[in-house]
């Protein structure tokens, strides 16, 4: 379980708190949607989960984050990456290997998995995202959707119990979005906790998260059942979010 307890964080050199007194709990076997407009603190929240904050980004932090009871300040990002895998928005920022296979084995090697286990987990990760057949290709020769899935495999191969994903659907076509949904649902089915930061409520609604958090100005202003949160279209709109179309239509029909 990940417990975020009363965290306030301010980046060095910034005049404003990126997060203000945020508390939440994340469990295994669930999909969490984190939504909010630009600059609401969504990405900061993700960085908190695997210790990039406070280990990497400098700033002032109050409160604490516990991953399975371990304070993230007491563990290194490398140690935490065995528990919480962070998938970044732009996959191109991570590729440096000659083949897809090598790329996916980088993470497990870095955290010191033994060779037999690496073989097994790389294969598993590549099969999960449907790229096993392309394992001999260069990461840079893949399409945008394949790159995205490869970046997920690179994290999955480290066998984290939580997957935290930043804006997975940006730049993706409809087919790729569908396959991302399938991957995340399967991860949930396998008992992993999946945290997804996104603007794309339409897609999030189709994915069907268990819990949704709405962030604004670094504060969790709303949390709970996605149906309830998405139905409140006025609240979403005033917070800079576009509600899923079916909720817009439903609520406009009720008004009429």
């Amino acid at each position: 379980m990940i417990e975020v307890e009363g965290v306030t964080f301010k980046y060095e050199g910034s005049g404003m708190n990126a997060l203000r007194d945020v508390s939440l709990e994340l469990e295994r076997g669930k999909i969490y949607g984190v939504v909010g407009p630009n600059g609401s603190g969504k990405s900061t929240l993700l960085r908190l989960l695997n210790g990039l904050i406070p280990h990497f980004y400098r700033g002032e932090m109050k409160g604490r984050v516990l991953v399975d009871g371990v304070d993230t300040r007491e563990a290194s990002v490398a140690q935490l990456s065995k528990k919480v895998g962070l998938v970044f928005q732009n996959p191109e920022h991570m590729f440096f290997s000659e083949t897809v296979y090598e790329e996916v084995s980088f993470g497990p090697k870095s955290i010191g998995m033994d060779p037999e286990e690496i073989k097994e987990s790389v294969r598993w990760a590549l099969e999960e995202v449907g790229l096993w057949e392309l394992r001999e290709r260069s990461p840079w020769s893949l399409s945008g959707g394949e790159m995205k899935r490869l970046s997920i495999a690179c994290i999955l191969s480290m066998k984290p119990e939580f997957l935290a994903v930043d804006e997975p659907t940006i730049g993706q076509d409809s087919l790729s979005k569908e396959s991302l949904s399938e991957i995340f649902k399967r991860m949930r089915g396998e008992g992993k906790g999946v945290v997804i930061v996104t603007h794309d409520l339409e897609w999030l609604d189709e994915l069907g998260p268990d819990v949704v958090f709405v962030l604004r100005y670094g504060v969790v202003i709303n949390r709970g059942d996605p149906k309830e949160i998405f139905s409140d279209i006025r609240n979403l709109a005033t917070n800079g979010l576009i509600p899923p179309y079916r909720y817009i239509v439903d609520s406009l029909l009720e008004v009429g």
Binding site: F88, H93, M94, F106, M158
Partner: peptide, 16 residues
């Protein structure tokens, strides 16, 4: 910005 994203991406893969 790219450099920051690259380093944080790799650090998140257990890179030291």
């Amino acid at each position: 910005d790219d450099v920051v994203m690259i380093i944080t991406s790799q650090v998140s893969r257990g890179y030291e």
